[in-house]
């Protein structure tokens, strides 16, 4: 673990012992990446907000189960995915209530600096293509891709978070990558985000 990881681990250990006053610092270190992960899992702001809040609540309730020295971020990712899957199962039983989902682009995940209007439109198109394809692919492939390519976990760490083997994680991430590459190509982009 790096310095932030060590700090996070030490704060989580204190929080697990019942030191409620470290919550704010813990939240400050954990929340941004956890929220980004929830956004990528849920692909809608409303769902991501709910998933994020429920994850923190469960993390709080399960704090006594934290293993000293473990990376709290990976633990939080695993809880977030468990929360998301539970919500997914719930919504699948009640499909009539699906909908009202806004795309992640509405939160301003797209950041464009010092560019022309044409470049902004192009970037928006690229973002929409990626977000749409990520939302369309299976949850298993998507989450493997997110952990490996966006959160930069090693295949072994991702396998631990997902409760599966390293080979399976690599296969799922590769399938997601191929699917994104194909979607970009169809939309007129190279895999590196350049117009073809």
């Amino acid at each position: 673990m790096n310095a932030t990881g060590d700090r996070l681990s030490s704060l989580m250990e204190r929080y697990a012992r019942g030191e409620d006053r470290v919550f704010e610092q813990l939240y400050g270190l954990l929340a941004p990446r956890l929220y980004r992960f929830c956004v990528r899992l849920a692909t809608s702001v409303v769902e991501a907000d709910d998933c994020f809040q429920e994850t923190f609540l469960k993390l709080h309730r399960a704090r006594a189960t934290y293993v000293p020295g473990a990376n709290p971020l990976y633990w939080a990712f695993a809880i977030a995915r468990s929360v998301y899957l539970t919500r997914l199962r719930y919504w699948r039983r009640r499909p009539e209530q699906l909908g009202a989902a806004r795309d992640v682009a509405e939160v301003g995940e797209l950041q464009v600096h010092d560019t022309t209007p044409e470049a902004e439109v192009a970037a928006q198109h690229l973002h929409d293509t990626l977000a749409s394809e990520l939302g369309r692919m299976s949850e298993k492939n998507r989450v493997a891709y997110i952990l490996l390519k966006e959160e930069n976990l090693s295949a072994r760490e991702a396998a631990e978070v997902l409760g599966t083997s390293v080979e399976v994680v690599k296969q799922r991430a590769h399938r997601a990558y191929e699917s994104l590459k194909s979607a970009l190509s169809t939309a007129g982009w190279s895999e590196y985000g350049n117009p073809v």
Binding site: Y27, A31, P32, L34
Partner: peptide, 15 residues
């Protein structure tokens, strides 16, 4: 980042 802003916005509710 947008995720930082959003998580800050959600902090009071989570707390």
């Amino acid at each position: 980042t947008p995720s930082e802003r959003r998580s800050e916005y959600l902090y009071p509710r989570v707390r």
